[in-house]
Structure formats: C-alpha cells, structure tokens
Amino acid sequence: MKKLLLMYEQVQDFFSHFVKREKKPKAGGLKVVSKKTVNLAMLAGLIFILLVGLIGGIRAMTLSNKVTNLEQAVSKAQANQTVKPSETGVDNALEYYLNDFVYYYFVISENPSEQVEQAEKLKSFYGSEPDIQSQGQMKNPSELIWYRILRVKDNVATYQVRYKQKVKEGDATKEEEIATEFNIPYGQTDTGYYVAGLPWFTAWQSNQVKSVKDGLKLNQSDRVDEKTKKKLDKFLEVFFINYTTSQDNLDLVAKDIKTVNNTVFKTLDFSYYKEKKGEIVAYVQVTFEVAGSSHAENFTLYLSEKGKSYYINKMDHMIPSNYAK
C-alpha cells in the first residue's frame, strides 16, 4: 500500500510539470486546464508506469538468475560430495544399515509365521535375491547377545557376533552360545547400500597379544638413601590423601592436578626414586578404593624440592618398563 501511495505521489508530481499555470483566479473561481495538457499528462503517466514495470521485470529476472546459479552451485557441490568416514574409519550410514542386516540375520523367532516375516525382511537387503540351490535349510531360534563392527575392507564388512540359539537334542532343547566373525559383502549406489551376496562365517580372531618382551617388573631397588626414601614416601602419602580429598590442599603441593571424586587412598605399595636433570622422578604404585572395591594404579611423578618438603610439577598415569635404567 505504501508503494502505491508513493507511486501516486510521483505520478502527481510528474503531471504538475505539464499543467499550464493560469493566473490565480479570484476566490471561488475554477482552474481551467486545456485538453492538450490533460492528454500529455495521461501519456506521461502511462510511460512512467511502463518504465516502473520494466525496471521491476529486469530486477526480477536478475534475482531469478542469481537463484538459479546458486541452486546449480549447491547441486554441483552435493554431487561431488563424498561420504565422510567416522573416527573409527567406518561410514556411520553404512554401519547403521549393516547393523539392521545383522539383527535380522541372527534374531529368529520360535513362531513360524514370524520366521517367514524375518526371512522376507532379510531378502529385502539384497541387491538381487541370492540363488540358493540347497533345499530345506534349517533355522534354529536364536537371539543376539551382542555384536560390533570390526573392520571394513574391499567392500566387505566384518562383524564380531556373539549369539545364542536353541538346539534340539532328542526330546530336550538346550541353549548354545556361539562367538564368530560374520562377513557381509556390500555394494553402494547413488541412493544407498545393498548386500551384494551371501554372508559367510570365519573363526573368531583374538586381538590379544600373548606376551610382550621386557614387561613391567616392579622389583628394582631405587637410587636414594633410606632416609630420603622415607621422606619421599611420607610426602607422597600426604599427596595422595589430598589427591582424593581436597583440591585446596592439593594445589599447595602439586601443579595443575585435579582431585578424583568418590575415591579413597589406601596404601603406597611400591616406590622407586631417581634423580634426573635436577629433579626427582618417582615411580609409584598405589591402591585406591571406590565404593568398597579396591584397585591399583601406576604413576610417574616429577618432583622438585620446596623448602624442607617437595612439590610435584607433573604427573603421568603409567610406569615405563625401562624405569630403572
């Protein structure tokens, strides 16, 4: 509405240039405008309106071109975008998709009708339904205990799966737990993923190393005299009490170390001290208690002398295997 009023005022102002100014009549007289002046004013108004419409059309076309160019740029960026892997190296979307496949593969109901539904759901994951030549495959009722993706390589996702199934033995039925690696071949298109063939089972591979050379042995004698050792042990006992109770007191004896909550210091079980580059390095093992349960932790502490006591400049939560060298 404001734009219309503004346009009207502009047209009216434009018309005023073509109106013939007559001498001011006496009070109560009428202003006479010639027909030629009126025609010129109407023509000028029409030209003005057409000009405004033309300018508006040009601006609209320019804006439309900008929007079109922006849409094309966005579409191009989306087309060139690749799926980013998660921190574990596995695309999250792929993992969620294959998790569903694992679920429907191993969760088998005792109800025959539900087994049919489960089989149909499983088939929907394949790009094309696999051709299975064997007849009368047996499916024991089973359920997942847990599963996790282990690796993805060459379009094959490997899961570690632990499940249990009900197995008939004569007239009785028993539950049997099975741990296995489950391998799923998959493919990808512009619209999503599909299972590219029949999955297969492989032996469970443990990632646990059986033994390591030069393991940590806390059986070394330290390099300080007995009096100094007792003084250092006493200081560390005070430190660990504060470490589990009071941040204010801890700040007096240590730098940038935070207290641990709901923990009780029990004993200083092992300590080994040596001087290194003007400071004392302490390798210690301590027992803590949390909610009635105790556990041991290893520490490496870097101390400097402060008055008649000590101050901890740094703390690490480990003891290196070569601590005594």
Rank of each mutant, 00 (worst) to 15 (best):
Q115Y: 02
G278C: 04
V161W: 02
E297S: 09
G170I: 02
E129P: 11
G307N: 07
K229N: 09
E275Y: 01
K276A: 14
V284Y: 01
T68Y: 14
V290H: 11
T267S: 03
P185E: 03
Y163F: 13
P199C: 02
I47Q: 11
G53L: 15
Q188I: 08
D251R: 01
K3F: 00
K314G: 00
N99I: 03
K277Q: 13
Y163P: 05
V102I: 07
Y96K: 14
L30E: 13
I184D: 00
E279M: 13
L252K: 15
Q247E: 07
G187V: 14
G170R: 02
K266D: 00
H295G: 07
M315N: 09
K174R: 15
M61K: 14
T287I: 03
Q220M: 11
A119Q: 12
S321F: 05
T37A: 15
Y104F: 11
E110G: 09
S304C: 03
S221R: 14
Y273I: 11
V116Y: 00
V290L: 08
Y186W: 13
E226F: 10
T202E: 12
K66T: 10
F299C: 00
S309L: 04
F235Y: 13
G89C: 00
Y104K: 08
G53T: 14
A179H: 12
T263S: 06
V195M: 01
D225A: 10
E143N: 14
K325V: 14
A254F: 04
A60W: 13
D256N: 10
K174F: 15
V264H: 03
L50I: 09
A44T: 07
S75H: 11
Y105F: 13
L218K: 10
V52Q: 07
T202C: 08
F14T: 03
K229Q: 11
Y311P: 00
T189M: 05
T244S: 08
V167S: 03
D222N: 14
S128L: 13
W200V: 05
L198A: 02
